[in-house]
Each structure stands twice: as structure tokens, then as C-alpha cells.
Write a protein that binds this DNA or RNA. Structure first.
Length: 255
DNA sequence: ATGGTCGGCAACCGA
């Protein structure tokens, strides 16, 4: 089973990119974030003949999540249990034996703002969501754009970026609390090299070099991580007629 | 060089 995640930064602009990508990589499941399309405007016709089913939740202008799957969806849920209308940032479904939780975590804007507190709270709520709905022994994928790098080797400038809302102790701690539910970072399971990024800020494109961040993840609970054969970052991030600033991440499981 | 660019959507916000 092949599972992928991709922050598309507008599903409609990246529609052809997604279609091509599905054909080339043929994942069983593709999780998307920042679709930026309201449900009534979702281009369902364009994806009708792909062999994929899809579920989605969007809003005007911002956020939005979707899952494409070759297999049937079960147990679909949008948003947290307590606040199902709290922005389209979480979509969950069971696909085969695997529970897929696709999240677009709030970016946080700046330290010491309400938006940053909202981000930290979001991780707390996510931990509770896992506790309320699952056991660590279940087969769960937690994936998406976490808007956070965990270690120095996950960013291009660990000294300069220290304290950024996506690279600071408070954020790392908040994520670690979710990980402690029982998750394994499948990318790091197979690759320890520094400089492996999934995001490049296009505002810095005029500057040279690999100025990236590792912000996108595929976490698996331990029984599932044991079956993880590979996890790779799309090696063709600049050649797909984007610009999207994120690139896909793909994990394969022997199930 | 203390800037820069996208996308949505219709003036700015968010990243």
C-alpha cells in the first residue's frame, strides 16, 4: 500500500499536476492540503475517470483538505469530534485496514500571537482526537503539512530560523506530545541524512541554494511502521509545472 | 541587497 501527502496550494491551479502525478506514482492513497476550494466548486468531473474516489472539505480562499483513494472509504470524519465546523484542516477515513488522518496544521504566523496559541492548541486537540478514537495498537497513518520542522537537520538554517513558529521548542514539544501517542516518522525510519526537505519558500526563490524545510510527514503507529518498506520525497520537485512550494512525500507499506 | 512571490479573489490575507 502506497500512501502519499502533498500540500498543493490550490487544487484547481494544480489540477493537471495532480492528475499527472497520480498516473505516474499510482499511490493507493493521496492526501492533499491547502486545496483552497469550496466544496461546491470542487472539480469532481476532472477526477471522475482516474479510478480514484475522493473525499474533501474546503472553504473560501484558505485551507482545505482532501483524500484520493483507489479503495473504498469507511468511517469518514471531517474535523475534530468537539468542533466539526472548525475549519477544514482534518479529514479522516478508514481505507482497507488503515485509518488515515490527513491534517493541515495552522501555520501560527508569529510567536506570542493568538494565531500561534491556536496552533499549539491544535496539536493538543489532535492528541485528544487520537486518544478518543484510537488505540496505539491500531493501524493509523497521521500525515499532512505539519508546519513544523523537528530537528536542526530538518531546516536549511537552524541557527537563523530558531524561534520561528515552525521551528521552536514550543512547537516541537506540542508535536512530540502527539507523536508520543505512539507514532513513528516513516521518513526518518529510512533516511537519516540532513537537508531532506519538502518545502521551499518561493519568496526566497531569487536567492540560491536548497533553502528548504521538512514540514510534511507520514507518521505511522508502531504496528504499521513495522511494515513500512520505504518513505521518499518526490525527487522531481521542480519539474512538474508547479510552482507549488511543497513537494509530495510517499510511503510504502507491506500490507 | 533587510527585499522578494504566489493564490484566492476582488482589497488585502495567508503562507
Amino acid at each position: 500500500m502506497k500512501i502519499a501527502t502533498f500540500n498543493v496550494n490550490s487544487l484547481r491551479v494544480r489540477q493537471q499536476v495532480i492528475l499527472n502525478w497520480l498516473k505516474e506514482y499510482k499511490p493507493d492513497v493521496l492526501c492533499l492540503q491547502e486545496t483552497k476550494v469550496q466544496d461546491k466548486d470542487f472539480p469532481a468531473d476532472a477526477f471522475a475517470d482516474t479510478g480514484y474516489e475522493f473525499i474533501f472539505k474546503g472553504q473560501k480562499s484558505y485551507n482545505g483538505v482532501a483524500i484520493f483513494s483507489k479503495h473504498k472509504f469507511k468511517d469518514i470524519q471531517i474535523g475534530f469530534d468537539d468542533e466539526p465546523n472548525d475549519g477544514p484542516r482534518l479529514i479522516k477515513a478508514k481505507i482497507g485496514k488503515v485509518n488515515i488522518v490527513n491534517t493541515y496544521i495552522p501555520q501560527g504566523y508569529m510567536p506570542e500571537t493568538d494565531k500561534f496559541q491556536y496552533k499549539l492548541q491544535w496539536f493538543k486537540r489532535l492528541r485528544k482526537f487520537f486518544e478518543d478514537n484510537f488505540k496505539p495498537s491500531d493501524l493509523i497513518i497521521w500525515t499532512g503539512d505539519l508546519n513544523a520542522a523537528m530537528e536542526d537537520k530538518d531546516v536549511h538554517d537552524p541557527i537563523g530560523l530558531k524561534g520561528h513558529v515552525c521551528f521552536c521548542d514550543e512547537t516541537t514539544k506540542a508535536i512530540q506530545n502527539v507523536i508520543d501517542f505512539g507514532f513513528v516518522d516513516t521518513f526518518r525510519l529510512h533516511n537519516q541524512e540532513p537537508g531532506q526537505y519538502t518545502f521551499w519558500d518561493y519568496r526566497l526563490r531569487t536567492l540560491s541554494g536548497n533553502q528548504g524545510w521538512r514540514l510534511d510527514y507520514i507518521y505511522a503507529t508502531k504496528p504499521l511502521a513495522k511494515k513500512c518498506i520505504s518513505c521518499i520525497i518526490d525527487k522531481k520537485p521542480r519539474t512538474m509545472n508547479r510552482p507549488s512550494d511543497h513537494t509530495p512525500l510517499i510511503a510504502e507499506f507491506d500490507i
